[in-house]
């Protein structure tokens, strides 16, 4: 079943005349992990933000369950975002340094107004336990946490609204390799348990290969190749994919 259908999505940053996303068309199926790989600056994160309407697209369409996300009102979009979430790249920048971890998670419920009072705290504890942290973290500040722990908080926050689809924007690229494996395990486990759908963005082909079902290779705003992980890794067609595979440090 198609969860999201994206058709010829365009975004140009006018000031710099950069076509960050240049005609992206693809579908994401329910329950799959779709990888998006490419160098810095090729438009991966812009695409992620376009899908969630965190920035506005110039043209194109994004269908989520028969609704064109680009045509619905802001309040409808806010409701829809309950099921479309994102885990950001840099866990040092994506948590408010002045908020306690409990507040970070409870804020999600304040925005969506679906859970109130005491229930919020219980939910937050439950989420922290899901991601391998415990109740003790409620009162901590993000500065007291290590990179891995912060990223777990980021994951808990994304899970707070019980989403169907999560964009993972380089969730492990700033972590040590041992912590990276822990976080990948957590993401794989959550995906299987909750039947989540991921759009997994990374520049590390090792990471992509270990978690994704399908991969799309992006270069300067365009998809140059896409296919199952098997095909892309075993039998790359496009020159750029070959270069990426050659430079990747695959053991």
């Amino acid at each position: 079943m198609k969860l999201l259908k994206i058709d010829s999505l365009h975004k140009t940053f006018k000031k710099h005349k950069v076509s960050a996303v240049d005609g992206a068309s693809f579908s994401i199926f329910k329950g799959e992990v779709l990888g998006l790989v490419g160098e810095s600056g090729c438009g991966k994160t812009t695409l992620a933000k376009l899908i969630l309407r965190l920035i506005d697209a110039d043209k194109g369409s994004i269908f989520y369950k028969d609704k064109d996300l680009l045509k619905i009102s802001h309040s409808d979009m806010r409701k829809t975002r309950k099921s479309l979430q994102i885990i950001f790249q840099d866990p040092y920048a994506s948590l408010d340094p002045r908020m306690r971890i409990g507040e970070v998670i409870e804020e999600v419920y304040d925005i969506h107004k679906n859970v109130t009072g005491r229930e919020k705290k219980n939910k937050a504890i439950e989420l922290l336990e899901t991601v391998g942290l415990g109740e003790v973290y409620l009162q901590r500040l993000s500065s007291e946490l290590s990179g891995g722990e912060r990223q777990r908080v980021g994951i808990a926050r994304a899970l707070a609204t019980d989403p169907e689809f999560i964009i993972c924007d380089e969730p492990v690229s700033s972590l040590d390799i041992s912590i990276q494996a822990q976080i990948l395990n957590l993401l794989i486990d959550l995906q299987k348990r909750k039947n989540l759908t991921y759009l997994f963005i990374s520049h590390d082909l090792g990471v992509i290969g270990s978690i994704c079902d399908r991969v799309m290779v992006m270069q300067s705003g365009k998809f140059v190749e896409s296919g199952s992980c098997e095909t892309i890794f075993r039998n790359p067609k496009h020159e750029y994919t070959k270069t990426l595979l050659k430079s990747a440090l695959l053991s």
């Binding site: 041992s178 494996a181 822990q182 990948l184 082909l205 090792g206 290969g209 270990s210 992980c229 695959l250």
Partner: peptide
């Protein structure tokens, strides 16, 4: 064992 790669596809890592 924590090194991600295509060969370990869809398996959990044997993490530290």
């Amino acid at each position: 064992d924590s090194i991600p790669s295509f060969e370990h596809r869809k398996q959990l890592f044997n993490v530290i």
